[in-house]
Design a protein around this nucleic acid. Structure first.
Lengths: 336, 336
DNA sequence: CTGAAAGCGCTTACAG
DNA sequence: CTGAAAGCGCTTACAG
């Protein structure tokens, strides 16, 4: 075992094995050009000494695999946890480590991209909605472009205006699917409880919804993209528009908040009010009542995003659609 | 913007700013000993050139902050997502990046620790249960010890036998709390649906439960620590022990599976059977019916674990208890 | 306050 | 198949 604060270097291994630094390096990295038994011997010595290569030195010297960077809004949110799971799974297939950063706002996104660049990651996956106003994301986009210009690869999830490979979320179509479903059930007084109006994800889902719903929409409000945001939206809504027969929350997490608020007020779902969400987070099937939602397969999306970065750079950015699927469960029913 | 594949080095900045490498370095790292205006000038030049320091070089040269490593079993699991959220939050406070690895089995845990060591992280937080048989974790423990010996800091969550700082999960006491609650409700025919018997977490929860439940336990089975594991356990149980009036699943995720299986068979909860879980994952309050559980504050636990690593090494490992809280909701009621 | 030089731990041409 | 040497991009004593 190493002495406290002391670390074994390749030079130590080489000396003990009685070979040169170069041979030791080749033996351990599996580079061709060392006799099998010598390489084997060096490996044994290294193991017995508890040698662990220094990736910083290895990176600097031009060897070593780069790791991959992932930026999410909040890892505790099931939506992002799923994406992360997809990304980390694919990274592991390629023996890559992932460095993860949380970035709740545009300034932090920029800072995280910088940090990831400083660590010389090979690729960055940026999840988290872009903004309706492209100016808000301009600094981050420029940083991403600079990263690509310096040889890095990037893939974004749910961002439109970036000149990078992207998995585009099928938000507009998902909105339409939810809307049609509600109309089919006879609903004509519908409220939309949305996340921040500044986000593309919100704007897109809203657009799809409104396109089909037309003037059956009696209310659109904006709240935090969270359980409590959904609950607050529902409470407020019930005061002002008690005539509403259906509520669509712009995410499952918000929808769960809506469900909680409705339960608290003793309003039956779907007997009195139908509720629908977006995403199909893992727990959507298990809430009470089970949530009707538009499924976006986030884990697959995360995996797909990282896979895009393993392709070489393209002349024109690749775009891949997430697709979506309407999942009808018990939270929606015929209008009363 | 840099040319494709070309990266700006500190030497480029120094040259452009008309100073030496040393002065450029000091200006950018904020080291004392450079006139304010010169430092300011260098910083402007660096920014205008889009310079991003190479952390690998910085680390090698002895400067730079080390990042922190986190190992979880599965980031998509809300239990671990919460822990990760706590860890990443604290890491951000300290301007540290976190490198995250998923490790579903002991061999992978070992591999991940090695990788983290190779990246010369300053600290490792290992979440994920230890094993009843210490031999299973021996290799990982040794690697952790070697890491500490070489100056690294480590904190584990829910592992007993490691000679490192640890946040100990209050599993035994949590088991007792759930057990007492069930007994108080008059249940005398109780089934336990557990995760893998090899895990400490399972053994401890089971121990607390059995200590209080005594011979009211009619069945103990082991399944995957997952929703489907819980569902399978419940289905199997109902066949063999229809007389059971209460089921405790060893995690909320499993309990959600139990709830699903019961619903499928039309068995009322808690009218026919009461169900309880462990952890209080964020969604526990929103499932149907709302889940009675023993809360372990995972986000705080993750945060506490990382904070332990910021303290200097201790002569004897620090142990911190997670504490727990019985949360009674609607899935438990009087025995029929 | 500023600079020239050594060194961090590797990998990889370049020779042999 | 093996080794001596240069170099990756920084930071930090050491001088001045």
């Amino acid at each position: 075992m190493a002495e406290r604060g002391t670390t074994i270097r390749l030079a130590d291994v080489a000396e003990r094995a009685g070979v040169s630094l170069a041979t030791a390096s080749r033996s351990l990295t599996g580079t061709a050009g060392v006799s099998l038994k010598l390489a084997e011997h060096v490996r044994e010595v290294a193991t017995s000494m508890g040698y662990v290569a220094n990736m910083h030195a290895r990176s600097l010297a031009g060897g070593g695999e780069s790791s991959i960077g992932l930026i999410v809004t909040e890892i505790g949110d099931p939506y992002f946890a799923e994406i992360a799971s997809g990304v980390i799974g694919v990274a592991a297939e390629h023996q890559r480590m992932v460095q993860i950063g949380q970035a709740p706002d545009p300034a932090t996104v920029l800072a995280q991209i910088r940090l990831l660049r400083a660590y010389r990651v090979g690729a960055i996956v940026l999840a988290g909605s872009g903004h309706v106003d492209p100016a808000v994301d301009a600094a981050a986009d420029a940083e991403l472009a600079a990263f690509e210009a310096s040889g890095g690869r990037v893939a974004v999830v749910g961002r439109h205006h970036v000149a990078a490979d992207a998995v585009l979320l099928d938000n507009v179509a998902a909105g339409r699917s939810i809307a049609r479903h509600l109309l089919d059930l006879g609903h004509r007084r519908i409220a939309l409880i949305a996340g921040p109006a500044t986000l593309n994800t919100v704007a897109d889902r809203l657009a799809g919804l409104r396109e089909v719903l037309g003037d059956t929409v009696v209310s659109v409000t904006h709240h935090d993209f969270s359980r409590s945001g959904g609950a607050a939206g529902a409470a407020e809504l019930l005061d002002i528009h008690p005539e509403v027969t259906a509520i669509v929350a712009l995410s499952d997490v918000m929808a769960i908040g809506v469900l909680a608020a409705l339960r608290e007020q003793g309003i039956g779902v779907p007997s009195m009010v139908s509720v629908a969400g977006f995403d199909d987070i893992p727990v959507a099937a298990d809430v009470s009542p089970a949530l009707t939602t538009a499924r976006l397969p986030m884990a697959e999306i995360g995996a797909a995003a990282l896979r895009l970065t393993t392709l070489g750079p393209a002349v024109r950015p690749r775009r891949k659609s997430s697709g979506h699927e309407l999942i009808v469960r018990e939270s929606t029913g015929s209008a009363r």
